[in-house]
């Protein structure tokens, strides 16, 4: 296995062949914001928050899917990408209904965290407020699409880890929706095992447990699960 060296924000770092820029940055305590990425899942590359600059390349590169190649010089927080990230979070906040004060994920929400970290207190774009129907048909969980950011973590965890593939995306563009099975009520889904993994990976309050007053954040639980499965090691 060959090893690579590169620089991130001027800091020399080393990387293995498999590591992405995001992996290496996190390893070295450099915080690149993400939303669709979740440790243990395949990459979606849809939120575009982890875009970084690489010297000599006019394009921006999604850190989550860009290999940490030999000799590249990565800049993670240029003024340009910082401004873009802020616009992306603003767009998300205007897209559906993100009213923190009445949300179960309040103070436990990755979208909220991003907005706070960016000191984003006003949204300049017109709120779309689409008024989508909530699905409370499942005995234990609720799906509120109004809070969904379409990161597809639920889709991926259900497919890749649980193997049920209950969730998928329906329609396109602004009408895109996460649906269970063939767009039927979650509670009637024949494929759902009720494992709750989707609820645990949801970055916002779109998926939550009935009766809960807060959501649980556990960013390491999938890596824990995978280590347990693959190496029979029950360690955190």
């Amino acid at each position: 296995m060959s090893v690579r060296t590169l620089t991130i924000n001027g800091q020399p770092v080393s990387a293995t062949e498999e590591q992405t820029i995001l992996d290496v940055a996190r390893e070295h305590g450099i915080d690149i914001p993400t939303l669709c990425h979740f440790d243990g899942l395949s990459e979606h590359a849809g939120c575009r928050l982890c875009l970084v600059e690489i010297a000599g390349s006019p394009k921006l590169h999604a850190a989550c899917v860009t290999p940490a190649a030999e000799g590249i010089e990565v800049t993670t927080h240029s003024d340009r990408v910082t401004a873009y990230r802020r616009q992306i979070v603003e767009l998300l906040l205007a897209e559906r209904n993100h009213v923190c004060s009445v949300c179960v994920a309040n103070r436990n929400c990755e979208l909220q965290d991003l907005a706070v970290a960016m000191n984003l207190h006003h949204v300049r774009y017109e709120p779309q407020d689409p008024q989508l129907a909530l699905d409370a048909s499942h005995p234990r969980f609720i799906m509120d699409p109004n809070r969904c950011v379409l990161c597809t973590r639920c889709v991926r965890v259900c497919d890749e880890i649980e193997g049920a593939h209950t969730w998928d995306v329906m329609a396109r563009g602004r009408r895109a929706m996460i649906v269970s099975d063939l767009n039927q009520p979650w509670g009637e889904s024949p494929s759902c095992t009720g494992c709750g993994k989707c609820v645990r990976v949801c970055p916002t309050g779109a998926l939550f447990e009935k009766g809960a007053t807060t959501t649980v954040r556990d960013p390491d639980f999938l890596t824990y699960l995978k280590t347990a499965r693959e190496q029979k090691l029950w360690i955190r």
Binding site: H44, A45, G46, C47, R48, Q87, I88, L91, L92, A94, E95, Y125, E126, Q128, V149, L150, V169, A171, R172, G173, R174, R175, A176
Partner: peptide, 21 residues
């Protein structure tokens, strides 16, 4: 473009909506 965006990435999905608005 707004109607044909697949919805996978946020800039295209939500950005075209706001530009259209």
């Amino acid at each position: 473009c707004r109607d044909e965006s697949c919805g996978k990435c946020i800039p295209c999905r939500a950005g075209t909506v706001q530009m259209h608005t």
